[in-house]
């Protein structure tokens, strides 16, 4: 009883500062967070709203949809958008097909190469696009250089610093060895284990990687312009040189489109996290532990 009393007293005295700190956290933390959030929102929203206003503002303070209407009838714009979407989807598909098995294999079988691969995927960040284009002209016949397929492949490489990290991070968070061993002992070959066991666990990160690649492709200007493709950003630039209000309307439209995609992805990812996040006590009284990412030592 004495021990219990002492413990209670210690607990009471120890709880005081902690409670005060929590109260202070509420008093200052919440408004501070709100202020930071508001400033961030203003930073992004003001230019967006200003662009929207510029695109929709007519003469003498009136409002008009003429720029939007002009866009709807701009065939060149829509064909450029279609080309960009085709290239983006192609690049996303190649990214997933190339990087997810690579990351799984490197983490599973060649862990020493992980650092090397991480370094390699950063190379596109430091090599200027002009150098890449010159290299392409030197390495491939002109007919191939002007093919959209090559542009898609180039975008796979250029988006790799971002897309690879998303996929590799998710792969590293899995207990890869145990899952693959389990899949194989249950009768799955490598391919079946990859598609039926691992890919479902990587779904969210694969979607993120695809989205990053698509977003990159839809916004990339320099490479497409230098290789002579009239993609969406190139067409946008051309419109901007003639009709700045139309170009601004397109920009706002493109931003909203990207925002919607991102929000959808966040919602899907959030739902998955909530579904997996809870830890419950089981019928035998033990609490389930989260999966251990590191492999248990082999004896």
């Amino acid at each position: 009883m004495a021990a219990l009393t002492i413990r209670r007293r210690a607990g009471a005295s120890g709880a005081g500062p902690a409670r005060r700190a929590t109260a202070a956290g509420f008093r200052f933390g919440l408004p501070l967070r709100g202020a930071v959030l508001a400033l961030s929102a203003l930073y992004f929203l003001v230019p967006l709203l200003a662009s929207g206003r510029f695109a929709l503002e007519g003469a003498r303070g009136t409002w008009t949809l003429s720029a939007v209407r002009a866009l709807a009838h701009d065939g060149a714009l829509w064909s450029s958008l279609l080309l960009s979407v085709e290239i983006a989807l192609g690049a996303a598909a190649i990214t997933l097909a190339l990087l997810s098995p690579t990351s799984v294999w490197v983490n599973l079988r060649l862990p020493r190469l992980r650092r090397v691969l991480e370094g390699l995927t950063l190379v596109p960040l430091v090599v200027p696009v002009v150098v890449v284009v010159l290299g392409l002209y030197g390495a491939f016949p002109p007919a191939f250089v002007t093919s959209p397929a090559l542009l898609a492949l180039e975008y796979v490489v250029l988006a790799m610093p971002y897309s690879y990290r998303v996929i590799d991070g998710a792969v590293q968070s899995l207990d890869l060895h145990t899952l693959t061993d389990a899949g194989r002992t249950l009768g799955g070959g490598w391919v079946q284990t990859f598609f039926r066991v691992l890919l479902p666990q990587l779904r969210t990160s694969l979607m993120s990687a695809a989205f990053i690649t698509i977003a990159y492709c839809l916004g990339e200007f320099a490479m497409a312009s230098l290789l002579g493709f009239t993609t969406f950003p190139v067409q946008l630039f051309q419109i901007g040189t003639e009709q700045i209000d139309e170009a601004t309307a397109v920009s706002v439209f493109a931003l909203l489109l990207v925002f919607l995609l991102l929000a959808t992805l966040s919602l899907l990812g959030g739902k998955r996290r909530v579904a997996r996040g809870s830890i419950v006590a089981g019928g035998d009284g033990t609490a389930a532990e989260p999966p251990r990412p590191a492999r248990a030592g082999r004896s």
Binding site: T185, G187, G188, V197, P200, P291
Partner: peptide
């Protein structure tokens, strides 16, 4: 290869496939 040896294995680490229910895990093989 492992998948043709007709073995069953239980691992030290929890190895159930997280995206499947218990019955789907059991039925996976």
């Amino acid at each position: 290869p492992t998948h043709r040896r007709e073995l069953g294995m239980v691992f030290q680490a929890y190895s159930l496939f997280p995206s499947m229910t218990a019955i789907d895990n059991v039925g996976f093989g």
